[in-house]
Nucleic acid binder design. Structure first.
Lengths: 223, 223
DNA sequence: AAGTGGTCTAGACCACTCG
DNA sequence: GAGTGGTCTAGACCACTTA
């Protein structure tokens, strides 16, 4: 089943065969298929829906729009979220980015800068690095013309589905990022570095986000 | 089974009855018990061990010592961790703490301050708030005489097992905390506020930690 | 060898969705 | 009503631990 997902035999949003069909295909019992699906659903690779079927998870599903964004308002509920792309350029990868994305140093990467607004104020300044060969043809104009989330667009335009991510958080000061957020240069910011993986634990995105945590916080559940 | 855990019929570290015994006790089949145990094991309430049995999870298990500490070194592996209690006093709860712990405002709480060192340098300054009725008799002396982790001690001394926690992260400056960490007062710190819950979603600890993220970072996996 | 959890099976019955 | 996933059963067999 992982192979069917990775090889794009089953694509995001699509309904996969029923448990009985899969049991026949793989030569196991229905209960075994069920357990396998349970595991993939727990990893957010599949979504079960009683009476309808089992579907390949997709970032195009509105409920998954900001699946990886852990920012919450200190009180009340989140304001309308808006993404404002600022720039998009192709540059050679520096050592750190190349290493994270498993590219050769100096390989071409696309750098995308953007702001995330909640309500009317900018709260996050992101610098996003993408391997140029996978995301060829990504331009500022295309991004500005589409309201959907970045990961939805990556799915639709490039067939790249983000599965999971690893984040590293630090408190820093950064005059440039603070300026983008309308804050003084010495204002403490939450730096969130994220490496995002697609099928097969393959890293395809690395980003650095500066968060203004005055009215929002990063929320994490520990189990 | 949740009731058996919450009522302390099964206590941390203890082996619970076999799947077949439980099936008989609850009048269901062994497969159903298995599924229930699977769920509790996924929540870290139980630990399965093939050939030996199923055990109630415990913070006294060395592998769970720093289960809720997400701090990782920027490179290489973590140095030896040491906790240094600084003070322990009973005070009236302020509004925020009382609210988080579901106590009446002004109810007595124990405030414990401590430093966490990695290698030889302090990296975390914690202020920990505990309901005084549950943790009665906690003193600085007792804490200083025991090397085990706080949550182990809470389990042994007070029968309170921490199940899960919710954290809120911000970047801040705090002159007092920075001083404790040997940093200038304007140094950006990662503020981690944690509310910790025992069985039945009951909050029993609230803490505020200031992290020096110069050589360490807070690591989070997103699924 | 006996007891534990780990995996799998074949089938029953229920709850939900949709034409 | 037909098809889907959701829950449960009773039992077989395997892998691991301990005495």
């Amino acid at each position: 089943m992982l192979r069917a997902l990775g090889d794009r035999e089953w694509t995001p949003g699509m309904m996969i065969p029923s448990e009985n069909d899969l049991a026949a295909r793989f030569g196991v019992s229905q209960g075994t298929v069920r357990k396998a699906i349970d595991e993939l659903a727990a990893e957010n690779l599949l979504v079960r829906c009683q009476g309808k079927g089992t579907f390949v998870a997709s970032h195009c599903d509105p409920s998954a729009y900001y699946r990886f964004l852990r920012l919450q308002p200190n009180d009340g509920h989140r304001h309308r979220t808006r993404s404002t792309p600022l720039s998009c350029a192709e540059v050679p990868a520096d050592a750190a980015v190349a290493d994270s994305l498993r590219l050769a140093p100096g390989a071409p990467v696309i750098v995308l800068e953007r702001l995330l607004d909640f309500g009317d104020a900018p709260v996050v300044f992101d610098q996003i690095f993408l391997a140029a060969d996978i995301f060829a043809g990504l331009t500022l104009e295309r991004l500005q013309q589409d309201e959907r989330s970045l990961y939805s667009l990556f799915e639709i335009w490039f067939g790249v589905r983000m599965i999971h991510a690893e984040e590293r958080l630090r408190a820093v000061t950064d005059a440039h990022a603070a300026g983008r957020l309308g804050l003084p240069g010495t204002y403490p910011l939450l730096l969130v570095e994220r490496c995002t993986y697609t099928y097969g634990e393959r890293p395809v995105e690395w980003r650095r986000g500066f968060y203004d945590t005055t009215r929002y916080h990063y929320r994490n559940i520990l189990n």
